[in-house]
């Protein structure tokens, strides 16, 4: 039986988390507007450019040196920017935990893993994005990234609570399997981390544009205003790469565990069902991203576009395939 009061608590907790994220969004926006790089964009471009090309080709090695002085600051200890950034960070943690509690209540209310329909997947994806960000922020100062994480999370939760909402219920038989825990959990974690990676790749494009305009002696304009509040393009690129590279094996695992589940449920491990097809497309795009990073003429801007194509494929698989294209994976719970 469904525990209705717990299911209700779960719904309230989602709204509480969303409220927290909204305030965090405002705080991060203030913090970003007040922050500056320690070393100005112009200076750092000039300095990196002065490092000999041979050393630059050393790749990471040079980066370790270069990043020191491109850190972002949001003013002195008691400045308004720093305070806002701290508030944003704390609220993000709090809202993430509230969201986690909501998911937990939902699961307990139905005595099952709370990922059985699109509403529940969306809550889980929102949680995966924000917890990835929180975990990454433990070791490094990521307040400059907060706005670009909280906004997508809010969009996701907004769609979940309005369009995708479904009451807490039992599962359809196709989902009665321990592979639900393995496959869907792996996929959700990947979606969360790939979203953070995509945010970094998008910001890389902004920073790269500003830096190359400076190199070319052009006005940087509005992109410069944002780029001046971000780490260097190289740094952003490296962070994005590390997240994608770290997650790619897990995504591979998610696809393969899906195939194993499909074998148990439908009698074939791969049948080019639309959902499977897009999981494959996503996989191929991220494999292309990793290859682009080691291909002359493709690293940098083009690789970043490929990473953004990857997250787009994930979104297509989630929204378009689940809702519009009929297939075996029809358990969106949306009518």
């Amino acid at each position: 039986m469904i525990n209705e009061s717990l299911a209700h608590t779960s719904n309230i907790l989602v709204y509480a988390a969303m409220t927290g994220f909204v305030v965090a969004m405002v705080a991060f926006a203030i913090s970003l507007s007040k922050s500056r790089r320690i070393e100005s964009l112009e200076d750092s471009v000039a300095r990196t450019n002065s490092i000999s090309p041979a050393a630059r080709l050393g790749g990471t090695a040079t980066l370790e040196q270069a990043t020191v002085s491109t850190a972002v600051t949001d003013g002195d200890e008691r400045g308004a920017g720093r305070r806002a950034g701290n508030i944003g960070m704390s609220l993000t943690w709090l809202s993430t935990l509230l969201l986690g509690a909501s998911i937990l209540c939902r699961g307990i209310s139905a005595h099952r893993l709370p990922w059985g329909n699109m509403y529940e997947f969306s809550l889980a994806a929102g949680f995966a994005i924000s917890i990835s960000y929180c975990v990454l922020s433990v070791k490094r100062d990521l307040r400059w990234l907060g706005l670009f994480i909280v906004v997508p999370v809010l969009l996701d939760l907004g769609i979940a609570t309005t369009v995708l909402y479904t009451d807490s219920e039992d599962l359809v038989p196709a989902l009665h399997s321990y592979w639900l825990a393995i496959h869907v959990t792996a996929a959700t974690v990947c979606v969360g981390a790939f979203s953070v990676g995509a945010a970094l790749s998008a910001l890389y494009l902004v920073a790269e544009r500003a830096e190359s305009r400076i190199l070319a002696g052009l006005e940087v304009g509005r992109t410069g205003a944002l780029a001046n509040r971000l780490p260097s393009a190289d740094r952003l690129d490296l962070m994005a790469y590390r997240i994608h590279a770290f997650m790619f094996p897990l995504w591979t695992f998610a696809v393969i565990s899906g195939a194993i589940w499909a074998e148990a449920a439908w009698g074939r491990y791969w049948g080019w069902d639309p959902k499977e097809t897009w999981a494959f497309i996503t996989w191929v795009i991220y494999a292309a991203y990793l290859h682009a990073r080691v291909t002359v003429g493709w690293r940098g801007r083009k690789a970043a576009y490929i990473a953004l194509a990857g997250i787009s494929a994930i979104l297509v698989n989630y929204f378009v395939v689940n809702i519009l294209i009929p297939g075996l994976h029809s358990y969106s719970g949306v009518k």
Binding site: I281, I285, H291, T295, A313, I325
Partner: peptide, 17 residues
């Protein structure tokens, strides 16, 4: 190799439409 990877992704799309 990169080009072929893209082509493979692209070629799969009509299969889902």
């Amino acid at each position: 190799a990169l080009f072929l990877l893209f082509l493979l992704a692209l070629a799969s799309v009509p299969g889902s439409i």
